[in-house]
Every structure is written in structure tokens, then in C-alpha cells.
């Protein structure tokens, strides 16, 4: 998983809990590299889960809530640091439809063998997008937060429902319905 994700999670934690707390949490999270991450590195997702769990233990905020907040945080970071990704996108659905292609380049450019999540989209009706997220990693709530934040970026409001995908336990379907 891309180093940016780790660096931003730690920044969010520092913003919320302060540097001293983050020092302690990283020190006690039993991380392979002692919590030293660079944006251009690539690290196992299991390390991210360890950090989320440790932050949850410290703060009492559930891992799911932390993941969702982190989804919002990272979308703001993308808007600042990957502004070109948003260029030419007129609404959240156009942005969400582009994620699969964009993420491939960003991850594969440095790590050609990296495993990738898949984001398959389908406009089932006007104002209704289905997005199927497939990944061996348990980051559904993180995705949910990013979708919420993406809608926010375009000043749109929608209901987002999570549904299981039959025959694929590592996939989740997000039903995104715009509020008219």
C-alpha cells in the first residue's frame, strides 16, 4: 500500500491527538519499521490496520469511524496534492468513475508488481451510481469516507448504502443515490 496513505494517517492522528500521543502509539503498535514511512514507499496493508487499531485503542473511537474520518482526510489531501486528478471532472460520479484508472498509474509507476484494489462503476440510473470495491484488505469504511468526501467536493449530497456482493466475499457494493 502506498506510503502516502501511511504518512497521511499519521498526520491526521497528529492533528487530532497531538505528537506525543502519536509517538507513543507508533512506539507500541509493534510495527515492522518502527513507524517510519515515506510517501514514495510501499508497505503492507496489515501495518495500516495495526496503526488504526492502536489509535482506536488509545482514543476509544471505533476503527470503522477512524477509517471513515480518514477517508475524508485523505480526499482533502488528494484535492491539494493531486489537483490534476480532479481537472475536467464535473461531478462526483465522473470523479468516482476515474478512480480505477488513476489509482493504477499512481501505484504502478513505482511498484509495477503492487496489488491493487478494483473500483468497478456502473451508472444504473440517472443520479444513481453503483461502485463495486474489491480488495483483500478490510478498508470498506475508508472507501465509504472517501466517497462521502468526494460528494462533498462537488457540493453534492447522496445516500450511500453498502451491500455485499454475492459470490465475492472480498467485494462490497456501494449504492450511491444523489439527493435531488
Amino acid at each position: 500500500m502506498k506510503g502516502t496513505i501511511f504518512v497521511e494517517l499519521i498526520k491526521m492522528a497528529e492533528d487530532a491527538f497531538g505528537e506525543t500521543v502519536v509517538d507513543d502509539v507508533l512506539e507500541n503498535a509493534d510495527l515492522e519499521n518502527g513507524g517510519s514511512f515515506t510517501t514514495v514507499g510501499n508497505y503492507p496493508c496489515s501495518e495500516l490496520i495495526k496503526i488504526v487499531t492502536a489509535l482506536s485503542d488509545h482514543s476509544g473511537i471505533s476503527p470503522a469511524d477512524l477509517q471513515r474520518k480518514f477517508g475524508h482526510w485523505i480526499m482533502d489531501h488528494f484535492v491539494e496534492d493531486y489537483a490534476e486528478m480532479f481537472k475536467g471532472k464535473n461531478n462526483s460520479f465522473e470523479m468516482l468513475e476515474a478512480v480505477d484508472g488513476e489509482i493504477h498509474v499512481e501505484v504502478k509507476k513505482l511498484y509495477p508488481d503492487a496489488e491493487l484494489p478494483v473500483f468497478k462503476t456502473d451508472r444504473v440510473a440517472d443520479g444513481h451510481l453503483e461502485m463495486i470495491y474489491s480488495s483483500p484488505h478490510p478498508l470498506v469504511e475508508f472507501c465509504h469516507g472517501m466517497i462521502e468526501a468526494c460528494l462533498g467536493q462537488f457540493d453534492e449530497a447522496a445516500t450511500i448504502d453498502q451491500c455485499p456482493v454475492s459470490g465475492n466475499a472480498s467485494a462490497t457494493k456501494f449504492e450511491i443515490t444523489l439527493e435531488q
Binding site: 491527538f17 497531538g18 500521543v21 507508533l26 512506539e27 517510519s36 515515506t38
Partner: peptide, 22 residues
């Protein structure tokens, strides 16, 4: 929650940054 940033950083923080840069 102490979110105020002090002028100094901990040794651990410095060493993490150092390793990341390398």
C-alpha cells in the same frame, strides 16, 4: 487532548524522519 505543537520534537520522531528520508 493536547494538540498544541511545541518547538521541539522527540528523538523518536527525529529518528523516524531520518529513516524515512534514507
Amino acid at each position: 487532548m493536547d494538540t498544541k505543537l511545541s518547538d521541539q520534537v522527540s528523538r523518536k520522531r527525529y529518528e523516524r524522519e531520518q529513516r524515512a528520508r534514507i
